[in-house]
Amino acid sequence: MRTITAIVPAHNEEEGLPATLESLARQTVPPDRVLVVDDASTDRTGEVAASHGVTVLRPPRNLGSKAKAQNYALPHCTTDLVLAVDADTVLAPDYLETVLPVFDDPTVSVAAGTVRTRHTRTVWERGRSTEYLFGFHWHRPIQARANSPMVCSGCCSVFRRDDLMSFGGFPERTIVEDMDYTWSQQIAGRRAVYVSDAVALAADPEDLTYLRKQVWRWMAGFCQNVRLHLGSLIRHKPLLALWVHLALLEIITAPLWWATPFVTAATTGQPLAVTFAWWAGAELLLTAPPLIYAAHRRKLPLAGVLLNLPCVYATKTVNLVYAWKALLIELVLVPLHLARGLTVYEKGRADTPRGRTTARTAPVGAG
């Protein structure tokens, strides 16, 4: 029987933490121990965690990033497996029961399930919900069938502790530790696994201010990992390198695709309404089938899923802006020693309903 420790890094998370800890307590296969790292919170995070009967670890100062907080807890883990779960993520009751069997394969180093949004109240949450449904029911299954997933989501990943310790813990050299570890393990010949039936609900940014912070961190982190790992991926994990190149190609060509109806109207003399209708129809043809499948698979109201579809263009616009910014800074200016790259870890949500937020500083390798 495998043993498992859950690590929950928490910085000013008194509002969302109870739901996370309750979801861990409700697991059909509960973790043997839960460690909450109260990372210099200025609210009641520590007291809330203690009231749930879990072990609370308090570093002497703010550690600066999620990976550092996780590494602070790692010496306290003596179990076979380690579950890293964000303090705003709620796991389905059978999450661990569903994920754990993949570790019967001794080559599996890390595994994670499907991520969905906890809330769909604002245009940004609705857009992110659509992105998740599309990505986890189109891109991720294809990558899984090819045994080369792009990332095991950091909000809900299970790690083989021996591999994690041998690697030196959660990587701190990039701003997104989950992608760094997923790529590193696959380069080393270990397996990363996507478990589609395991579901985690994440609290995503509800306004543009925090969406921008999250997307910038994700895009900069992706490019940092490209800078750090691409050569090794090409040599040791070519299919994963293919997904990375396709992602880069999508970023580069996205402005051309979005400009297509306007360019077509200008060069052919057709009314913009006509060219835009053809463009929108092509978009719908490419996007709708995975969403329809996702609605069926997750037993979601199809009308609600499709009504959220226009919202994804708001989040896609933010994604595109920061993807290009990341390409320029992390893949051009940093190698030329003209910029340092992203080193500040900022959460994608306000700390509390009153809106306090604290930036965390994390070291980022130059690659």
Rank of each mutant, 00 (worst) to 15 (best):
T20N: 07
C152F: 04
A112Y: 10
R140S: 06
T182P: 05
A200Y: 09
A366T: 14
L242D: 00
V108D: 06
L248V: 05
P271Y: 12
H76T: 10
G46T: 06
Y293C: 00
A84T: 00
F159S: 04
L327N: 02
N147I: 01
T107G: 08
E250D: 13
T98F: 03
D32R: 04
L286K: 10
C311W: 06
W279F: 15
H52K: 10
N147F: 01
S232H: 13
R217Y: 01
S51A: 13
V318Q: 04
Y210S: 07
A247T: 11
T98H: 01
S129I: 06
D88P: 03
T287I: 05
T98E: 01
P290Q: 08
T209N: 03
V123D: 09
N319H: 13
S153T: 14
H229D: 11
R33F: 04
A288P: 04
V54P: 09
Q27N: 11
E330P: 03
K213Y: 11
T114Q: 04
A67G: 05
W278P: 01
R116K: 14
R128G: 00
L228W: 12
L336G: 03
P75V: 07
V34W: 02
A362W: 06
H337Q: 14
R118A: 15
V151Q: 08
Y322T: 00
P205V: 04
